[in-house]
């Protein structure tokens, strides 16, 4: 090991979050689903990492592992570490997780703002819960003030007037702002946003993406943006990890991923979606379906659908670095010696 590897460069901060070799399996009657099967991720302070993948790729199970909110009793982290601010979350007890971490230093905004809010409690009660629970504000007056402040931060107009309203009195976009307010109430270090805009109309989507940018600029929160929408990923993320069948197949700077995709799956996705202003008669479809994760293929999991499949694809390719910070798990990306 060289000195440079031991002593970090002055400007280079250790990552806020480091996920190493994470394996999360679901133990179901029909078999063991290897939902997350050896995932490595990093998020720096003030950075937005996009996790792009389709349903079943493991992106949601990865984020639920970080929150330690896996479905019970089937979900279990079987291997790996999730280090946030120097602490391995995998090793924490549920009590420690509840007291100091979940909702406090790591929180989540989910896809559907209607189901994440309780219809029978007022917005003030619900947004106030994290303040009361983590004792960040004591007494009715102080909690109310804190709630008003956080509602203002997510740009809800006249928070003092809306605080006693109920979820059904808010529009879809405003509900998503309320859910975001609950997630940022305790000024978390890491915010996981699972498809936060996919239930919203495009004009509202733009407003929500701008809100996430503002919140990050003001607080330096690290964000993991989980999305299946390549447009959303390109619009808001600094770095992107593309997941397929439980593994990260490609990761790197957002420009690298979109301008210089190295994995055939990433290239296939980009070619298969229609792009505004570039009309083509036919789309280049990716053949086949994603594999089952109960008995996944031995080698590269994309091989069965890959137009460039070779004999070597029967062995799972390691992550090859194709450019600085840009890695692809594909034999085509192997450096020529």
């Amino acid at each position: 090991m060289t000195d440079a590897a031991i002593i970090p460069a002055p400007m280079q901060k250790p990552p806020l979050l480091k996920v190493e070799n994470l394996k999360t399996y679901l133990y179901l009657k029909r078999g063991v689903v290897r939902a997350v099967d050896g995932v490595d991720l990093e998020v720096a302070e003030g950075e937005t990492l996009g996790i792009v993948g389709e349903s079943g790729s493991g992106k949601t199970m990865t984020s639920l592992s970080m929150l330690r909110l896996l479905p019970k009793p089937s979900g279990r982290i079987v291997e790996g570490s999730i280090t946030l601010d120097g602490t391995d979350l995998v090793k924490l007890s549920e009590d420690e997780m509840v007291r100091d971490w979940r909702g406090r230093r790591i929180s989540m905004v989910s896809q559907d703002p209607l189901t994440s809010l309780n219809p029978v409690f007022s917005i003030g009660d619900q947004v106030g819960a994290p303040f009361r629970y983590h004792k960040l504000a004591q007494g009715r007056g102080a909690v109310r003030k804190a709630v008003e402040a956080v509602l203002a931060r997510v740009r809800i107009p006249s928070p003092a007037k809306r605080i006693d309203d109920y979820p059904h009195q808010f529009s879809g976009g405003m509900r998503q702002r309320v859910v975001t307010a609950m997630a940022i109430a305790c000024s978390p270090r890491l915010l996981i946003a699972d498809e936060p805009t996919s239930a919203l109309d495009v004009t509202i989507q733009v407003q929500m993406m701008e809100l996430f940018r503002e919140l990050q600029r003001d607080s330096g929160v690290g964000i993991i943006m989980i999305t299946h929408d390549l447009g959303v990923a390109a619009g808001i993320c600094h770095r992107v990890a593309v997941m397929y069948a439980g593994r990260v197949v490609e990761s790197g700077d957002v420009r690298e991923i979109f301008r210089n995709p190295a994995h055939p799956y990433t290239r296939g996705l980009l070619n298969s979606i229609p792009h505004l202003g570039r009309k083509r008669r036919r789309l280049e479809a990716i053949a086949g379906q994603p594999p089952s994760l109960i008995d996944p293929p031995r080698g590269c999991r994309f091989a069965a659908r890959c137009p460039q499949k070779m004999a070597r694809c029967d062995d799972y390719p390691p992550q090859f670095e194709v450019a600085t910070g840009h890695k692809a798990a594909c034999w085509l990306a192997e450096p020529r010696s």
Binding site: S171, G172, G173, M174, D201, V202, T203, I204, Q205, V206, Q207, M209, E210, D229, L230, G231, V232, A233, A234, G235, V254, R255, F258, R259, L270, I273, H275, L276
Partner: peptide, 18 residues
């Protein structure tokens, strides 16, 4: 419309509200 292009930024505030 979000575009799969990191150098495209949807102009904010074209329209407000819902």
């Amino acid at each position: 419309v979000p575009r799969p292009d990191p150098d495209h930024r949807a102009p904010v505030g074209v329209i407000y509200g819902e």
